[in-house]
Amino acid sequence: MNQWLLAIIAVVVAPFIGGILAGIDRKISARLQGRWGPPIVQPFYDFFKLLGKSKIAVSRVQLVWLYGYLFFMITSLVLLVLQQDILLLVFMLGFAGICFVLAGFSCKSPYSHFGANRELLQMLSYEPVLLLMALAIYAQNGSFMISEIFKNNTPLIVPLWPIFIALIYVLTIKLRKSPFDISTSHHAHQELVKGIMTEFSGPYYALVLLTEWYEIVLLLGLVSLFWANPLWVGIIIALAAFVLEMFIDNIAARMTAGWMVKVSWAVGLILGVLNLAYLYLKKGVL
């Protein structure tokens, strides 16, 4: 029962944390650009404003996918909080991404189609790294359960630092920050209008924002797993990673989708495979 309470608390609290983080993101970006920037709670204003706008949409099936995006994201978060199977978590995260892509596909809009196709490429780029991360955690702990990570006293980051770097790398893709804000972008950036987001409006766009907040929390949660004992170190690492992403966002130019796939497969695979090979050698499986 305790577990479920925890899950419910996580589901309720996560959007607030995510929203604040998004606000901090906008503030820091503004400061880096020499501007004052909006208030920290700005994302919440945006969210509630969008909720209050009239409902217009371009297609009915879009809504199913947007809810799928939200619900499967929440599912992954619950899996994280309940310390369940990390491989399953990655699958759920992937499926949430697919729902988002399908929402982009489900209308005859050229811009959202472009965005959806590019989002697919983004998924193609980050999915292998996340799966490799799950495998590496298994190689280290002998279990896919997140609960086992907490039982382990050595922080995962020590044997798994190459995978950690790869994870930070794909975090940029997952948060859609420059140079990988290819399918869509945040703040006032524009990419092919608004890429995959072009056709989500009003309350439905609010749903997307909400899901993104969950996503931020989830991803930072994954990062913090790399120093799970004590967890506060992990959280500090995750926040540092988040700030780092903002710096990268503001100093990098947008790259092309093809470059992204090539480089992330190269970086992710080389780091991941070297890391796995090291773990295998250590455990004597090879």
Binding site: R35, P38, Y45, K194
Partner: peptide, 10 residues
């Protein structure tokens, strides 16, 4: 953007 104004282009 101080006032929350963002240029959306959409």
């Amino acid at each position: 953007e101080r006032f929350g104004i963002v240029n959306m282009g959409n």
